[in-house]
Amino acid sequence: MYDITTLSPSITEEEVCKTVSGVKAGIMEGTLTMAYNELYKTIPNPCLPSNAKGVHCLLLYWYALENFSFTDSNFLTEAQLNAILVVSEQISKKCCCDG
C-alpha cells in the first residue's frame, strides 16, 4: 500500500471526481451505443467507447478511482493514478463534440 503522502499535490480530488463523472457517462453512453449498433446495425461512433472492450476498461478504471482515497493508504502510485486518469478521459471523451 502507498501512503497518500507519496502523492504530489498535482493530482487533486476535483480532478479525480471529474474523471469519475466522465467515466460514468462514458460507460452509459458506450453501453447504449453498443445496444443501438447491435439493434439497428448502425455505424459505430468512433468518438465513444462503442465496443465492449472500451466499456469494460472504463468499468475497471471506475472501480479503481472509486476505491482511491486521498486520506488513507492506497494500492496505486501517483504514476498509476495519473495513467488511469489520462486513459479514462481518452476512452470516455466525446471527441467529435469537443471544439
Results as ranks from 00 to 15, higher is better:
17 C>E: 15
91 I>D: 00
30 G>Y: 05
5 T>D: 12
27 I>K: 00
51 N>M: 10
91 I>L: 07
35 A>Q: 14
7 L>A: 06
67 N>A: 03
86 V>G: 01
17 C>V: 07
83 A>Q: 06
39 L>A: 15
48 L>R: 09
11 I>C: 09
78 E>L: 02
22 G>N: 14
95 C>H: 12
36 Y>K: 06
31 T>A: 06
6 T>H: 12
89 E>M: 11
39 L>V: 07
55 V>R: 01
39 L>N: 08
6 T>A: 10
48 L>S: 04
9 P>E: 06
67 N>P: 04
21 S>Y: 09
62 W>G: 00
49 P>T: 05
72 D>T: 02
3 D>C: 10
23 V>Q: 02
43 I>E: 12
92 S>P: 03
46 P>S: 09
21 S>N: 15
60 L>Y: 10
38 E>H: 11
58 L>K: 03
98 D>R: 14
7 L>I: 07
93 K>D: 11
90 Q>I: 15
4 I>V: 10
94 K>W: 11
49 P>Y: 01
78 E>R: 01
28 M>I: 13
26 G>Y: 02
76 L>H: 00
80 Q>P: 02
13 E>S: 05
6 T>M: 13
32 L>I: 09
27 I>G: 02
10 S>C: 01
92 S>V: 08
65 L>G: 03
6 T>W: 04
79 A>F: 08
48 L>F: 04
47 C>S: 14
72 D>N: 12
5 T>A: 08
66 E>P: 00
9 P>H: 09
79 A>E: 15
53 K>T: 13
62 W>E: 09
65 L>F: 00
